[in-house]
Design a protein around this nucleic acid. Sequence first.
DNA 1: GTCTATATGCGGATAGAC
DNA 2: GTCTATCCGCATATAGAC
Lengths: 232, 232
Amino acid sequence: MTDPSDSLRRQEILKRAARLFRRSGFERTTVRQIAAALEITSGSVFYYFESKEELLVAIMEDGIRDVHAAVAEGLAAKRGVAEKLLAMARCHLTALLGSNLDSLMVLLYEWRSLSPAAMKRVLASRNRYEDLWDRELAAAAARGWVDSDTVLVRQTVLGALNWAGQWYRAGSRFGIDALAHRMFAILMPRVHEQLDQGARSVPTGSSLPAALAQSGASPPIFGIQPTGAFSK
Amino acid sequence: MTDPSDSLRRQEILKRAARLFRRSGFERTTVRQIAAALEITSGSVFYYFESKEELLVAIMEDGIRDVHAAVAEGLAAKRGVAEKLLAMARCHLTALLGSNLDSLMVLLYEWRSLSPAAMKRVLASRNRYEDLWDRELAAAAARGWVDSDTVLVRQTVLGALNWAGQWYRAGSRFGIDALAHRMFAILMPRVHEQLDQGARSVPTGSSLPAALAQSGASPPIFGIQPTGAFSK
DNA sequence: GTCTATATGCGGATAGAC
DNA sequence: GTCTATCCGCATATAGAC
């Protein structure tokens, strides 16, 4: 097999695979299902990817590259530490909950299916991404705006943000930017106070309970979804 | 098959299955592996459980029952709203990170493998548990101690707590109680201020970075673990 | 490039001996 | 209760026609 890395078909396969992997998990999803969703046969999938695992690795590497790029860009566009941290939270959440939701959720929850070699590569990318956060959080801690245990702060903040992937659903009248701002105010109130007046006001949007009542769903503490993909 | 629900052997199987499900995922784990870990054969497992899925359901129901009981107990032992919320966070984290870590992680991350009927039962239990939180958070919101969007607060707080299951490892010199207190102070600072002096001081324990440096691990933003269970 | 057909192995579950 | 042996279906991956 050649490696037409940017073939259009290859991208279609990746996108569809990511959606199915998120819905049903890597193991439960079969190559036949991915192929059927694109109205091709499983043999064709193996023309583009040597193995099912290569699909998973490609999805994860795309995902982590996208979130890193988005956050680095948001970071570069701001000056102050507080503004930078807000931008990072907003960009992280946008990357996670936006058009890359499938890939990012696969990255977050399917890493056990990686081979050791692939795991090593993804870990290296992850560590580079964490460094972005640690640098800004250290600056905030030096000013007394967050707990001095910056690793704990990073885990707490990003844990809460990542968890949003479990319950946030697009189309709610509560937009991602408004959500990011509001979570930021909850998670780093002292940093939030440092923002200048204009930036501090929370973007408008109906309250979350109203938006969710509209959609009829109840956001979970545990990851269980009322309308998940079932086994059969 | 009879249903010796509280047979000792049955408990052993559940415990071992939970460990393997957490490490490798429900799908990757085979009944033969579970049996081999207990030095029995797969046929014996099917004497205690009708199917592999029944194993999963039992693990999850045990898990959610345990965390609910722990939090309800912590709640009942306290008077003030602030004290109740701190106790809830501590009990939730203790249930998650303590001896039930395997079961709770399976509950959090393997729900896609549930059949619709089983999902319905687990969802009902989950909703009852969420009610415990919503009641106390509403009381805190009424006093202006947390954002008025109590659903968002619940998702944020419990997301951060649940995420700790991804990175916290027992044996760190940073105990669970100290961790709970510190995360509580980060996540609900206004509530934390309401605690009386004695309760407000954070329990001692070396800082998290030190404890982690000791263990040589770096806590992840994404769930990927340096020392996870690999495919083979 | 996409297809059909198939090799190959594995996993859940069952039957029945002990 | 635990075992051995086995059925059955399915999934990854390959070979080779078109």
